[in-house]
Design a protein around this nucleic acid. Structure first.
Lengths: 186, 186
DNA sequence: GTCTATACTGCGATAGAC
DNA sequence: GTCTATCGCAGTATAGAC
């Protein structure tokens, strides 16, 4: 079954937004990639603000689902952490695409208020989940030298997003691997 | 002594670029802030590519100087690391501005090739310097549990840049402090 | 749901007067 | 060194035919 136009547009827009940021893609770009006229996109997403809100909603839900899947398929904290790092690594697409939340953060001044709030909500969801991961790590002992789980979580999210930036800057996954080597060795 | 127009323009452009990314500011914005017409800016910087290259050159030299100053004024590895974190914290301007290298990385597709190279060169300069910091830390014992200095350096730069993103996303320095708490406790 | 056509604004950049 | 004026193009968005 073919995806409908709206979904296709979201897919294309997500790729574009994660590659070039909010200010770096236009309805014209999307139209060309989707094979329709740019005016037609307004039927599906009235404004770019509406489109970016839809992108964040879908992205938030998708990543939340990935976290749930990791919990279901990996028992130890160390395995879950490794799976999370692998997810971020795969999300890079060889250095082409960043986390949507990272890409939107730089264009923050161009975003609608509700989209800014969605970025904060996404980050909160992630740090909460990673905090729980480190709390498990303290109990099961599979991750070494955990201080405060919440502090570790904020540091870990920063490191993952920073590693994304590094790989994007060099268009090379090696940069991501170097930055996460210490994290994975714990 | 008043700074000349070219320096004023660089100052304004740096602030704008670090707040909103390469795609997020225009000659029109700079002209308004500088109190001249946008056509006049082309006299100082023929194209936006030339301007962004000048921004990266100046930024690279300035940060390199900061690192040298830290070496001159702080003896132990732990003190130097703390000073580096403090420098990144101050560079945030309360969450408004990012590291120029971070801000440009997202707009990478809009940059001239030589500017992309300057980003890579900046990152290389930083990781080299931080690697030396951790090598000193292994010798003087003021930083705990150092594995491979180079790996620690890549992880640390990622964490600092990720912490910058976090603070920018929330427009709140608290996010930076949370992300660097673990780093400073070492 | 997609099209053509268009309105309006802003962009980077150039030419030439002063 | 800065100005006015302008070019050519791309941006988001809308109106209305099909």
């Amino acid at each position: 079954m073919q995806p409908d136009t709206k979904t296709t547009l979201l897919d294309i827009a997500e790729k574009a937004a994660r590659s070039r940021g909010f200010d770096g893609f236009s309805y014209g770009d999307l139209a060309q990639a989707a094979g329709i006229r740019k005016a037609s996109i307004h039927y599906h997403f009235a404004t770019k603000a509406v489109l970016s809100a839809a992108l964040m909603d879908r992205y938030h839900a998708a990543v939340e689902q990935v976290c749930a899947d990791i919990e279901a398929t990996h028992q130890s904290a160390a395995d879950r952490l490794a799976a999370l790092v692998r997810f971020y690594r795969d999300a890079l697409c060889g250095g082409e695409t960043l986390c949507l939340c990272v890409a939107f953060t730089i264009s923050r001044d161009s975003l609608a208020d509700d989209v800014k709030d969605k970025i904060v909500a996404f980050r909160s969801m992630m740090t909460t989940w990673i905090t729980a991961l480190f709390e498990l790590g303290k109990r099961d002992g599979t991750i070494s030298a955990i201080s405060a789980p919440a502090a570790e979580a904020h540091a870990t999210l920063a490191m993952l997003e920073g590693a994304h930036l590094a790989a994007h800057a060099e268009h090379d996954l090696t940069a991501f691997d170097k930055a996460t080597e210490v994290l994975l060795a714990r």
